[in-house]
Design a binder for these strands. Structure first.
Length: 547
RNA sequence: GCCUCCGUAGCUCAGUGGAUAGAGCGUCUGUCUCCGGAACAGAAGGUCGAAGGUUCGAUUCCUUUCGGGGGCACCA
C-alpha cells in the first residue's frame, strides 16, 4: 500500500462518515499522510482530526475516534492509534506495506511520475546567456536547476517546452564582431569590447571559413564576421550545455523578433490594450498601472526599440504559441526586472499571478576556482565540468533551494567520500546493482515474492521511504524545488545502506539454500535501484552500475 | 531611501502551524571468518538572530528590529 492509497482510503472513510451522518464538515481534497518521526508512532500518521475536529464542532480526539473505527476496517491496515491531541497513527500489515516493492519494480522508470500538473502547458526559459561569450558560473546554477525543474514538471504531467532566448540583436553584436575583427588584425580590443582569449579562437574559426575577410575593411566585413562568430559561439555554448546534460527544446532568437516586425507589433498590440503612451518623443509602456515603480520606455526618442520592448514582443510570442504559464528563471542580479516582466503580462491582458512566474535564484560562488584564461576574469562552466565533473556539479547545484546563496567547495566535491553527497547516493545505486548481480550469480531470482516476509525494521523504513517518491516529485514540481528530490534521495540511500547492513539478499556461508526471503528481498533491492535511478534522472545525474 | 533573499549544531546546510528541530563534515566510541567499508551502529553538540502579535499550539504565519548578500538604466 502506497501513502497515496492510504490517503485515498482515509478520504473514503471520511466521505462515508459524512454520508452516514456521523460528522458534518467540508472535506479537503486530499488528506496529508506523513511518516512520523518516531517509529513508536506507527508507519504513517495524519493530523486530519486536528484540522477537521473544530470545524465539525467536535473535540479532535472524538473525531479521531470516529475515523479510527472506520479506518481500522480497511484491508491492509493493521492498527490505528489515537495519540496526543488527536493524531491518528496507522500501522500497516507487513504484506500490505511490502507489496510496494513489487509495485515499484513493475512500474519501472515510470515510478514517481504523477498527474499533479496534468494539462498544464508551460514554457520555461532559462540560461539565455548572451551569444558573445562562453557560459560561465553565473549561468551554471540555472542550467542545472532549470533543467531539473523541467524534468520534474514533465514527470508531474505538464507539457513543458524549455527555451533559450538568444540576445542576438542590438549593438552588442557589433561590438562583439568588431572585437573579433580587431583580433584578426592584431589590433587592440575596441572600446567596451570583449577581451577574452576566446575571441582569438573565434577569429581563427572565422578566418578559416572565410579567409577573404582579412583583406576587407571593417564596414564590409562586419556583417559576415558577426554571423560566423555568432554561429561559432552558439555552437560552443550548445556543446558545453550538452556536456552538462542540458538540452533545450527551442533556441529563440531575439533578432527574429525585430526582423519580423514583432517588436513594433507588440507596441501596437499593447497600445490597443490602452497601456502605451508617448512622451518626450519616446514610446512608453505604463507599467506603473501594475505595480512597477516607474513607466518603461519601449521605443527611444531616436526610434530604436529598447531591450524591454523586445521582451514584451517575446512575451507575446510565448502567449501566441499557446503557453498558458511562462516561467522565467533569472539570477538575483535581475531582481529589478521582475515587476517589469509581470507588468508586460498584465498589459497584455494576462493574469500576472498565474500566466507568468519569475523565479529568482541567488548567485553562487566557488571557493578557489581558477579564473578562465581564455574568457578573461570569469569562471567558465566548461572548466567547472572538467574540474568537478558534470554529475557532482549538477547534483551540488540541484541540492540547494534557489533562493539560498551557496558557496561550492570544489575540494569537497572532488572527494570520493561521504563529504560528497552525490557519491553517497550514486554509491547506493551502484551497490544495489552489484547486489543484484551477486544475487543472480548465487541463483537468487525475482521469481518468488512474499511481501509478508519483509518484516525487519529496516525493511519497514526502506519501504516507507520508497513509497514517498511520487509525492516528493509532485511537491518538487508544485514548488519548483528540485532540491527536495536530492534530499529525498539521500534518505533513500541512508535507508538502503542500513537495510543492506542488517539483512542478506543472498544465502551466506555454508547455507546455500535460496529461500523466498532472499528472492523477496531482491525485489526490494531492485525497487530501491529503480527509485534511486528515477530520482537521479530527474536531476540529470547518472545512476552508475559500477563506480 | 525603496524592493528582495538569507540568519537553525563548531562548519556547510535541510526542514516543519503540531508529538523528542534534522543530515553531512568535524570530535568521541563501536562494527568486517560472509552480498561493494565510497558502508553501518552509537555519543556529544541547539534560548531555530532579537522582541512583540495571531493560534489550543509558532522555529514555521504577521509586524517591528538587528546583522549579512543582491537589486533599483531611453544598458544589453
Amino acid at each position: 500500500m502506497t501513502p497515496e492509497e492510504l490517503s485515498t482510503a482515509i478520504s473514503a472513510c471520511l466521505t462515508e462518515a459524512v454520508a452516514a451522518g456521523e460528522i458534518t464538515v467540508d472535506l479537503p481534497d486530499t488528506v496529508r499522510v506523513e511518516r512520523p518521526k518516531s517509529r513508536e508512532h506507527g508507519d504513517w500518521a495524519t493530523n486530519i482530526a486536528l484540522q477537521l475536529g473544530k470545524k465539525a464542532g467536535m473535540a479532535p480526539r472524538d473525531f479521531a475516534q470516529l475515523l479510527s473505527a472506520r479506518l481500522s476496517q480497511v484491508p491492509g491496515v493493521s492498527s490505528v492509534d489515537i495519540a496526543g491531541p488527536g493524531f491518528l497513527n496507522i500501522t500497516l500489515d507487513a504484506a500490505a506495506a511490502g507489496e510496494l516493492a513489487r509495485t515499484i519494480v513493475e512500474a519501472g522508470s515510470a515510478y514517481g511520475h504523477n498527474q499533479s500538473l496534468n494539462g498544464q502547458v508551460i514554457n520555461m526559459e532559462f540560461v539565455s546567456a548572451n551569444p558573445t561569450g562562453p557560459l560561465h558560473i553565473g549561468h551554471t546554477r540555472w542550467a542545472a536547476l532549470g533543467d531539473a525543474i523541467a524534468r520534474v514538471l514533465r514527470a508531474s504531467g505538464a507539457a513543458v517546452t524549455s527555451e533559450y532566448y538568444i540576445n542576438d540583436a542590438g549593438n552588442q553584436m557589433n561590438v562583439f564582431a568588431t572585437s573579433v575583427y580587431n583580433r584578426m588584425h592584431s589590433l587592440p580590443v575596441p572600446e567596451g569590447g570583449y577581451p577574452g582569449e576566446y575571441i582569438q579562437e573565434l577569429a581563427d574559426i572565422v578566418l578559416e571559413q572565410a579567409p577573404q575577410l582579412k583583406d576587407e575593411p571593417l564596414e564590409t566585413a562586419l556583417p559576415q564576421i558577426r554571423e560566423l562568430a555568432y554561429a561559432a559561439q552558439m555552437a560552443d555554448i550548445k556543446r558545453t550545455l550538452a556536456d552538462f546534460g542540458v538540452s533545450f527544446d527551442v533556441y529563440f532568437s531575439e533578432a527574429t523578433l525585430h526582423n519580423a516586425g514583432a517588436v513594433n507589433d507588440a507596441v501596437a498590440r499593447l497600445r490597443e490594450q490602452g497601456h502605451v503612451f508617448d512622451d518626450a518623443g519616446a514610446v512608453w509602456l505604463r507599467t506603473t498601472d501594475f505595480g512597477d515603480d516607474k513607466d518603461r520606455v519601449m521605443i527611444r526618442a531616436n526610434g530604436e526599440p529598447t531591450y524591454f520592448a523586445a521582451d514584451a514582443a517575446y512575451y507575446l510570442s510565448k502567449k501566441d504559441r499557446g503557453f498558458e504559464q511562462k516561467i522565467y528563471l533569472l539570477g538575483a542580479d535581475h531582481h529589478g526586472y521582475v515587476n517589469r516582466l509581470k507588468s508586460i503580462a498584465a498589459c497584455a491582458g494576462d493574469d500576472p499571478s498565474h500566466n507568468i512566474e519569475v523565479l529568482i535564484g541567488q548567485l553562487i560562488s566557488v571557493n578557489g576556482a581558477k579564473l578562465s584564461k581564455r574568457a578573461g576574469n570569469i569562471i567558465e562552466l566548461r572548466d567547472l565540468i572538467e574540474w568537478i565533473g558534470a554529475d557532482a556539479l549538477r547534483y551540488s547545484l540541484a541540492r540547494y533551494p534557489a533562493d539560498s546563496p551557496i558557496a561550492l567547495d570544489p575540494e569537497q566535491l572532488r572527494k570520493n567520500s561521504n563529504d560528497n553527497p552525490v557519491y553517497y547516493v550514486q554509491y547506493a545505486h551502484a551497490r544495489s546493482r552489484a547486489a543484484a548481480r551477486q544475487a543472480e550469480a548465487k541463483g537468487v531470482t525475482r521469481g518468488e515474492f512474499d511481501a509478508s516476509l519483509l518484516t525487519h525494521a529496516t525493511e519497514n523504513d526502506l519501504l516507507a521511504v520508497l513509497g514517498q517518491l511520487p509525492s516528493v516529485v509532485a511537491g518538487a514540481a508544485e514548488s519548483r524545488e528540485p532540491h527536495r528530490i536530492a534530499r529525498y534521495l539521500e534518505q533513500v540511500a541512508a535507508a538502503y545502506h542500513s537495510w543492506y547492513a542488517a539483512t542478506r539478499i543472498t544465502p551466506v556461508g555454508e547455507d546455500t539454500q535460496v529461500t523466498a526471503e532472499h528472492s523477496t528481498r531482491l525485489w526490494l533491492n531492485d525497487a530501491t535501484s529503480q527509485v534511486l535511478a528515477n530520482g537521479l534522472g530527474l536531476l540529470g545525474v547518472s545512476a552508475p552500475e559500477k563506480m
